[in-house]
Simulated scan of single mutants.
Amino acid sequence: MAGDEGIAKWIVERLQNDQQFTAVNAVGGGYLEIVRKDHSPFTAAAIGIRGVVLPDHVAPLFGGVRSPQFVVNVPSKVIWSGPAIGIIHGAPAAFGTLGELGRAARDEDVSSYRHREYKFFERAFEQHGAVRAVERLYDRVFKLHRYRGLKAITVVLVDAYDMSAEDVRNARETYGRFDAAVKISSYGSITTAAKEAAASMEAEAFKFGDLMGRLNKA
């Protein structure tokens, strides 16, 4: 499959009044040609996946005459698999929601856009002295392969001000097994119930700094 032409046309309607664009056109196959006031034009591809975005959903977007700099999915609540993200970033291109498409368009190089929080955590993991490789399993899940014979740790990012037991259980239901649930926000707290819920899954719940310390231990 290529892109979703119906969603591409819907995006055209949504962006018609966006002041940063001078023209937004659906050009067939789910592709959009977007002309900006302050930067050069770029190509986006629209898809309409529900559930999990897989490699087979995105690979065909880059095999034709057009190669998008951004892949946008509608609806916004979807899981992006690590292999699909790898294909997109390797193109190179970026991915995300319609709102993120608008944010990416503010920069000259649309393909370099990365979700701010995900980028922060991925970079921190890559730079950690105990981590030899970072494998992205899903948009919010990273498997950290460590040095010195330490076993790999799978980390899920949890977007919650006060991490609750429900947040931990939802992460498990959505992404499967993990070893560590880490709060994305530096504000708020991790409730006792969240820690207990994680422990019941043979996992742990952390704030960012505590997780960084945990990576040095067996």
Rank of each mutant, 00 (worst) to 15 (best):
A197R: 06
D210K: 13
V110R: 10
K77L: 01
L215Q: 05
V74H: 14
E135I: 13
A8M: 05
A171C: 13
G30H: 10
R36S: 14
A8V: 13
K9D: 03
L150P: 02
F95S: 11
A171L: 05
A46D: 11
S111N: 09
Q20L: 08
G96E: 06
V134T: 09
T22Y: 00
V53L: 02
S112G: 09
I153T: 11
G48D: 00
Y175H: 13
G51L: 04
L157T: 02
A152W: 14
R140M: 06
E117P: 02
K77N: 07
G149Y: 11
R103V: 03
A105Y: 01
R148N: 10
P55M: 04
D139M: 12
S164V: 10
D4N: 12
K217N: 06
A198S: 03
K77E: 01
V156I: 07
T191A: 11
P68K: 13
A171Q: 11
A26S: 15
V71M: 10
A180L: 02
I85N: 00
G63A: 08
T97A: 11
R172F: 09
V131H: 15
A205F: 12
S40F: 04
A218P: 02
V12R: 01
I88L: 10
A199L: 12
E126L: 07
H39T: 13
G51S: 03
F121H: 03
G51I: 04
I88V: 15
F208W: 08
E108C: 02
R114H: 08
L157R: 03
D56Y: 10
A152E: 12
A104E: 02
V35S: 12
T174L: 11
H39D: 08
R132K: 12
L157V: 03
L32G: 03
G176V: 13
E117Y: 15
V158F: 11
H89Y: 08
T154M: 09
D56M: 00
A44E: 08
P75S: 06
S164C: 10
P60E: 02
H128F: 09
R14L: 00
A165Y: 12
K143P: 06
I190C: 02
F95A: 13
I190L: 11
V141W: 08
H57D: 13
A23R: 06
H145N: 02
Y31S: 08
G86R: 10
G188D: 06
L215S: 05
F206K: 00
E135W: 11
R132G: 02
Q69N: 04
V24S: 04
T192G: 05
E135R: 15
Y113P: 09
F125S: 04
S40I: 01
L211E: 01
A26L: 13
L137C: 06
